[in-house]
Amino acid sequence: MLEVANLSLTYGLHRALDGVALNVGRGEIVTILGANGAGKTSLLKAIAGVVRTLPGKQVRLGGRDISALAAHDIVENGLALVPEGRGIFGDLTVKENLLLGANPKRARDGEAARREQVLELFPRLRERAAQIARTMSGGEQQMLAIGRALMSNPDILLLDEPSLGLSPAMVQELFATLRRVREAGVGLLLVEQNAQESLRIADRGYVLENGIIVGHGTADQLKSDPAVQRAYLGGAPAATPSS
């Protein structure tokens, strides 16, 4: 469904991404593991077309080449990004945010039915329809961000740290929702600080280090990989005693 190859990105002299290749299938959850600054956010932004990348990248979505498209056209082709910090329209109401989510032409058919689905996934949004988005709690804003992205009728959904700032109970609720989104046939590419949780719901994962993909496998393979355990799952080597 989503195929990315040779994706490179620099900020000044710093090479944030170097020849990244990955793919996400239909109805699949793929997670990116990596430390802070490994390039996870840059990777999602680059795929969504909101940052300028080095020439030579290839991004294909359902067989269509979307490498050269601007961000707003990429959404039209069925790829939605829920950015870090949510990116909702804080001054607009919940209802207006969802209305804009269905702004792509591909989302106009069946908009009412899709809104029903989204409100079923996130019942809280129905209660809050008339509320100004920025006055809601962090968890509610996160629901709105995901709901708005789903309104665009995406084939692929990119999620950047969706659990950031949520209570453990809410994280559970969120991840259960993501499973249901997958069941609807959407492919999810998930960046998470919380590797434990993300590997629990993911089908596959990639390990990103300093802008380079250094590992790849099914979620089970990654969970049992000692290097992954050591670096991301808290199976840390004996802590150096501090004195």
Binding site: A48, V50, A70, A71, H72, D73, V75, E76, A80, L81, P83, G87, I88, F89, G90, D91, L92, L100, G101, N103, P104, K105, R148, A149, S152
Partner: peptide, 12 residues
Amino acid sequence: VDPFAAQLVAIN
């Protein structure tokens, strides 16, 4: 409100 987020909902 937010031109960055606007492009994410297919606004040119």
